[in-house]
Amino acid sequence: MQPAVGGPCQGIRNLIPELAVQGIYSEVVCVDDANQFSFPEDPFTVHVLGPGVTPWQYTGLLQGWLEYNLDRFDIVIVHGNWLYPGFATYKVWKKLSESSNGASKQIRLYYMPHGMLDPYFQVAPGRSWKAVRNWLYWKFIESKLVNQADGLLFTCHEELTLARSSFKPYMPKRELNAGFGIPEPPAYHASMRQELDSKFPELRGQQYFLFLSRITEKKGVELLLQVYLRLVERYPKLPRLVVAGPGLDTPYGENARHFVSSRLSLRSSVTFTGMLSGDLKWAAFYGCQAFVLPSHQENFGIAIVEALACGKPVLISNKVNIWREVADAACGIVSADTYQGTLGAWSEFVEMPAAAKNTMGVNAEKTFRHQFSVKNAVRQLMSCLSMEKVVQ
């Protein structure tokens, strides 16, 4: 549930309050280390049973907690694959199901992969060993979890379709497009921009493009910077580029910063902000010309939807699983996750008349309201499942 790790934990935080409005009680169990970071003050119960150790995230506290508490709930949703919490939950759920013999309620178990069954992870460069490891883990463990649980919950149709091509045997009992969404963003107020300008004075009075995501290879940051370098050479009055997100202190992040610092035209045009949250984050969204994410794999893209909610066009790759929705709604430009594809899309937007950009922004907000609001996501989830008490 650490905010810096990415979208699933934020998705959980978005969904549970709206589920509560519908009378559905939820609790969260995680294997984070409470001593390593401060948890937000969530309006729901979070059981912190970490720290999870090894890449498998093993903790000896989890199985006992599940054995003692799982039967308090009607439905269990495991977020993510390949980790000990999913295995431990399956093991306890299976034991409870076999011991009840129909004499008590049957707890339903669902897995929500959040893109972790995407075939990208089996073919991406530099992942050969991890691909073999995943294949072995699938053969002996994960296939049982996926195929014997009551079903899989997907955030969008593209994710559901892609999951079918990664591993065999793949025979889930149910494949459910449960949707995903975010709450209404806070209304814009001038103090948001004042706070952003105060922290990053170089942005005062400037137009800019925004990248807001983790600084990793998968997100296409290297591609982003290479294309922006070409655009700076092509368009003398190009808006600045703001690169926001955690990961600047990693080797990949340090390489990204070196790429910028070693080029004069980029040093004066690119701002690295680190992770933004609260009003600073929303100020960054509201102030940008467009949101740019040339990701090589993106399951749902909460930041993309946050940009849409702020009425901002999005320039994304066709490896983002909601790219069809963006293209159909004309609220952004979709391209291949290549240098030429990203350059073409970005150049098209730069050369677009102001009226067309404004129309795209209006379409963006409409798309959020009609397809990606948390209210719609909860309605879609509830249409898939009949829920009363849920542990996630």
Results as ranks from 00 to 15, higher is better:
residue 21 V to R: 15
residue 59 T to D: 00
residue 242 V to Y: 01
residue 319 K to T: 15
residue 207 Q to S: 14
residue 340 Q to A: 15
residue 23 G to V: 09
residue 42 D to N: 00
residue 354 A to V: 13
residue 277 S to M: 11
residue 52 G to I: 05
residue 130 K to S: 11
residue 116 M to L: 12
residue 20 A to W: 04
residue 240 R to W: 09
residue 392 Q to W: 00
residue 355 A to I: 08
residue 26 S to G: 09
residue 388 E to T: 10
residue 36 Q to N: 14
residue 90 Y to L: 04
residue 107 I to Q: 06
residue 213 S to A: 07
residue 129 W to S: 12
residue 245 G to R: 02
residue 15 L to A: 03
residue 130 K to W: 10
residue 294 P to M: 09
residue 20 A to N: 09
residue 307 A to H: 01
residue 86 G to W: 00
residue 224 L to A: 05
residue 25 Y to R: 07
residue 329 A to Y: 04
residue 274 G to L: 01
residue 391 V to Q: 03
residue 295 S to C: 04
residue 386 S to V: 08
residue 289 Q to D: 15
residue 155 T to A: 09
residue 37 F to C: 03
residue 5 V to A: 13
residue 209 F to K: 01
residue 170 Y to C: 00
residue 203 L to Y: 06
residue 154 F to K: 13
residue 273 T to S: 07
residue 286 Y to Q: 03
residue 118 D to N: 11
residue 147 N to L: 06
residue 336 A to N: 13
residue 193 R to F: 12
residue 193 R to N: 15
residue 27 E to W: 04
residue 45 T to L: 09
residue 15 L to C: 02
residue 119 P to Q: 04
residue 46 V to A: 00
residue 373 S to K: 02
residue 241 L to Y: 01
residue 376 N to Y: 15
residue 191 S to T: 13
residue 12 I to K: 04
residue 89 T to I: 01
residue 249 D to E: 11
residue 315 L to H: 02
residue 348 E to N: 15
residue 254 E to T: 07
residue 235 Y to A: 05
residue 378 V to D: 02
residue 8 P to V: 09
residue 378 V to C: 06
residue 51 P to I: 02
residue 82 W to Q: 08
residue 274 G to F: 10
residue 253 G to M: 10
residue 334 V to L: 13
residue 42 D to S: 07
residue 265 S to C: 15
residue 68 Y to A: 15
residue 385 L to H: 13
residue 320 V to Y: 08
residue 264 L to G: 13
residue 316 I to S: 14
residue 336 A to E: 12
residue 329 A to V: 12
residue 219 K to L: 03
residue 188 Y to P: 00
residue 236 P to R: 03
residue 90 Y to M: 02
residue 114 H to R: 01
residue 22 Q to D: 10
residue 65 W to V: 00
residue 36 Q to C: 06
residue 293 L to G: 02
residue 198 S to H: 11
residue 333 I to C: 07
residue 40 P to T: 01
residue 392 Q to N: 12
residue 383 S to Y: 04
residue 46 V to Q: 00
residue 240 R to D: 10
residue 346 W to F: 02
residue 191 S to E: 15
residue 357 K to I: 05
residue 291 F to V: 01
